[in-house]
């Protein structure tokens, strides 16, 4: 029965937009346990897409498929087809390292390296050989901090440890770090869950700005945040993609009962 509903909702989810990421028939298993069931989704370019759904429904799992972070969990297996700009990211010939440089990630808890602010941002460009000279690298670091709206706050303390910043600053530092490798896509897994409202507002502002140049996917538990920042929204439930569409439409006129229940706070 349920399956049919998912099938039935499919026409709605097919986007009219130009998709960057296309996922087809994705299944994820942790050992014997299946966490994602047959998910199809398209993520449009230069827009913010939010993934919402009750805890444990597989949002993070699915997000981590997109930059193959799941490869680091030995018991985790992913099947199906995920493409970025038409390129199969599970192609064995593809270098995951390069993929992760192209698909940046920001984690739920800010996790700066226990190194200086400068080194935090310079690390990615350095290992990928993105700059030719020290000057170029300096400029890149400044630009990323500028973009992340952090430059003013840390200009004079570039050599102090990144772990000494406030939570919100740390999270913006992680965002700056993520954009320093010049990714096409940025994945954010509950980036604001550890932040206070003011820091959250700053990060949201930043995302708004970044979407001009990047494709962003954000996992969030906050309906308001999803409604505020994202253009597209995908609703997951029990490992299945229930509904995927224009944010306004999902929040005002969801086509699935479960979506409705969730956004009105009946479960989750």
């Amino acid at each position: 029965m349920e399956h049919q509903v998912v099938e039935g909702s499919k026409p709605v989810t097919v986007p009219a937009l130009d998709p960057t990421i296309t996922a087809r028939g994705v299944n994820v298993f942790y050992g014997d346990k299946q966490a994602i069931f047959d998910v199809d989704v398209d993520v449009p370019r230069n827009a913010i897409t939010s993934f919402i759904g009750p805890s444990g429904c597989g949002k993070s799992t699915f997000l981590r498929c997109i930059n193959r972070m799941n490869d680091t969990i030995p018991i985790c297996t992913v099947t199906g087809d995920i493409r970025i700009d038409g390129e199969d990211i599970y192609d064995p010939r593809l270098d995951v390292v390069e993929l992760r440089a192209r698909v940046g990630m920001v984690f739920q808890k800010p996790n700066p390296f226990p190194k200086s602010i400068y080194e935090n941002i310079a690390y990615g460009p350095r290992i990928h050989g993105l700059t030719r000279s020290k000057k170029e690298l300096d400029e890149l670091v400044e630009k990323c901090l500028e973009k992340a709206g952090l430059l003013k706050e840390v200009k004079d303390r570039m050599n102090e440890p990144g772990t000494g910043l406030s939570g919100g600053q740390q999270q913006r530092l992680c965002i700056a770090r993520a954009i320093a490798t010049r990714p096409e896509v940025i994945l954010m897994d509950e980036p604001c869950s550890a932040l206070d409202p003011i820091a959250t507002a700053k990060v949201e502002e930043l995302m708004e700005e970044l979407k001009e140049n990047y494709t962003i996917i954000i996992v969030t538990h906050s309906m308001q945040q999803a409604a505020r920042v994202s253009q597209r929204t995908a609703f997951f439930h029990l490992g299945k993609l229930v509904e995927n569409g224009d944010t306004r439409q999902i929040f005002t006129n969801p086509s699935d009962k479960r979506t409705q229940d969730y956004i009105t706070g009946r479960f989750g």
């Binding site: 930059n67 972070m69 680091t72 995951v96 390292v97 390069e98 993929l99 992760r100 440089a101 192209r102 940046g104 990630m105 920001v106 984690f107 808890k109 996790n111 700066p112 390296f113 226990p114 690390y123 990615g124 290992i127 990928h128 992680c174 770090r177 993520a178 320093a180 490798t181």
Partner: peptide, 27 residues
């Protein structure tokens, strides 16, 4: 060494060996 450090490095595209050499072993 907490896993978040490893994830952070993997997230910017460091290889497993680089994560070890640049972050985990020094820490």
């Amino acid at each position: 060494v907490p896993p978040s450090i490893r994830e952070a490095a993997l997230g910017v595209g460091a290889s497993k060996h680089q994560v070890m050499l640049h972050h985990v072993i020094p820490l």
